[in-house]
Each structure stands twice: as C-alpha cells, then as structure tokens.
Amino acid sequence: MKVEITVNGERTSADVEPRTLLAHYLRDNVGLKATNIGCDTTSCGACTVLVDGESVKSCTVLAVQTDQQAVTTMEGLEGASEGNPAHAVTAAFRQEHGLQCGFCTPGMVMAAISLIEEDPDLDEKAVREGLEGNLCRCTGYHNIVRAVLVAAGKDPDAAQQAEAKSGSRSMAPGFSTGEAGA
C-alpha cells in the first residue's frame, strides 16, 4: 500500500507491503543507511529515529503506521549533509569520543536528542536512565553519558563527580525503587 512519509524534511513515498518496518523503509526505500538494525526484540535501540519529534525504535514500527508523519534520522541533523557533525549532540559525541565502532551511534544520537528535548535539565543519573533503551558494546557508555551531558549544556566532569559522591545508584527506575507518596 502507498505511504507518504516526510523524512528529514523531504516528502518520500512508496508502495510497500504493510509488514515493511519503518527501519527497512528508511534503509531500502529511501536509501538512508545510517539507521541500523541490531536486534529483533526492540532491545538495542540502534534503529532509533524520531517520529514527529519523539524517539521510537524503527524496527518496531510499521512504515504504514507513520504514513503522513515526519521522521528524522541522523542524516537529517544539522550539518549532516555536508559531512559536518554540527548538531549539539553529534558534535559532543565527537568531542567526547562517545563512539567507537559506530553501529549504535545513529540510534544513540537520536535517543539523546529526544531525551534532551524532554528533559533539558539532565544529570548523570537521568542520562543513564534515559538511555536505557540503547545498547552500546564498545564504549561502556562512559563517554556517551559525557557527550549527552555536554550537549545538554552541563559540565560532564562536575556531573560525574556529583553522581560518584551521591552514594547508592541502585535507585534507578526499573531497579528496586520506592516510588513514594503519602
């Protein structure tokens, strides 16, 4: 069936099988290969893109579900078409060495953009929890977390020191927590 999706500001259209995943639409129909597929189970986040400004895992969204919506991939970020990582997040990833093999990077970058958009006042813990849906096998996340803090306008050294001194880390959501109200 026919879909029309605005990708990185440009209208794209194709006749696709309904089962076509958004990730495959972007890679095969539009020819944008930055978005990677790293797992089958919505676990790794390598395929993360923005749909109408929010991060989603494009391996778990059908292309037809985003008909008439706007999708942003890493290729659509500031400076990308000139090969210049000029977006605050991509620039910080480069400066802080937030990538090694690069496979998780496009998804990690898009997840980070959405995270900062939703919570500009991030600390280290919020960044770590906010990236819980993106796996990286190379960096140990240390420099990814720094890069996102930098992109959010924070001092990464100060943020990491504050977190290190804050004591127990085991209170992240998804960990045993006591969300509370009386």
């Binding site: 819980e132 849906g133 992240a172 045993s176 927590t177 109200g181 009386a182």
Partner: peptide
C-alpha cells in the same frame, strides 16, 4: 488523592 502508594519493580536491567 492523598492515599499512600508505591511501586517496587525488581529487574536485572533497567528495561527488563
């Protein structure tokens, strides 16, 4: 309203 509440979720990893 003001009734006490809490959620304790126990996982190995945050998004498990």
């Amino acid at each position: 309203g003001t009734a006490g509440w809490a959620y304790e979720k126990f996982t190995r990893r945050s998004n498990d």
